[in-house]
């Protein structure tokens, strides 16, 4: 579904990504892990062109991502994204957060959009919060609302950039549960996370990044049992030490 070839991203002189190749198949769940600053977010954001690469290409469904304008907006409607800081629209209720894009982009009528939104909110377990503003919700509820907002566009794939990193520990589980059930239903997902348990249980493939490069990739069983590179071994030793 995604084909990444030779992706390079420079910020000034420094490289955030160097010559990255990655394929994500339909229905696949790819978890990206790696130390801070290794380029995980940048890679994730290049997949819907929130970040425009310095070199290389990203194909989605066999076609290169449009560079800008309406074409790019249309592509983004197909690829949902969930952010570390939720980024719910602060001035709109949870329900209005979810209905905005379907109404503006897909021209869905309000009643139809609201019906879908309420179904999705029930599905992520916060149906009772529809009329509240984001700031009135807990972090876990906000992130689940953000997932519902992304799902309302009926995306073909979902990108998650550290969706649980800003959450209090007791709320991590409720968000991971929603993500796990999406994965089980066959959603194509690219997930940047530090949750090794999730990676182990849910990932079809783990991608380990360091210094802007993909250092190692493999099934979670292989990767966690016997990482083949020193970098990955060091990293796992550190994160699993706690």
């Amino acid at each position: 579904m995604f084909e990444v070839r030779g992706l390079t991203k420079q910020f000034g002189e420094s490289y955030a990504l160097r010559n990255v190749d990655l394929d994500v198949a339909r229905g696949e769940v790819v978890v990206i892990i790696g130390p801070s600053g290794s380029g995980k977010s940048t890679l994730c954001r290049c997949l819907n062109r929130l970040e425009s690469p310095t070199a290389g290409t990203v194909l989605f469904d066999g076609k290169p991502l449009p560079v800008e304008g309406r074409e790019l907006a249309r592509l983004r409607a197909e690829v949902g994204m969930v952010f570390q800081s939720f980024n719910l629209f602060q001035h709109r209720t949870v329900l209005d957060n979810i209905t905005l894009a379907p109404m503006k982009v897909r021209k869905t009528t309000r009643p139809e959009a609201e019906r879908t939104a309420r179904e999705l909110l029930d599905r992520v377990g916060i149906g009772a919060q529809a009329g509240k503003y984001p700031a009135q919700l807990s972090g876990g509820q906000q992130q689940r609302a953000a997932i519902a907002r992304a799902l309302a566009m009926r995306p073909k794939a979902l990108l998650f950039d550290e969706p649980t990193s800003a959450l209090d520990p007791e709320m991590v589980g409720e968000v991971l549960d929603v993500m796990t059930s999406l994965a089980r239903e066959g959603m194509t997902m690219v997930v940047v996370t530090h949750e090794m348990g999730f990676a182990r249980k849910v990932a079809d493939r783990v991608v380990f990044m360091a210094d802007g490069e993909i250092v190692e990739t493999g099934s979670p069983e292989e990767f966690f049992a016997a990482p083949s590179t020193d970098r990955a071994r060091d990293f796992l030793a550190k994160v699993l030490a706690h």
């Binding site: 819907n48 929130l50 304008g69 309406r70 907006a73 249309r74 592509l75 983004r76 409607a77 197909e78 690829v79 949902g80 994204m81 952010f83 980024n87 719910l88 629209f89 905005l100 894009a101 503006k104 982009v105 953000a146 907002r149 992304a150 566009m153």
Partner: peptide, 9 residues
């Protein structure tokens, strides 16, 4: 960013 990621121009 969230708005654009949803497909809004």
């Amino acid at each position: 960013e969230a708005a654009r990621a949803l497909g809004l121009t």
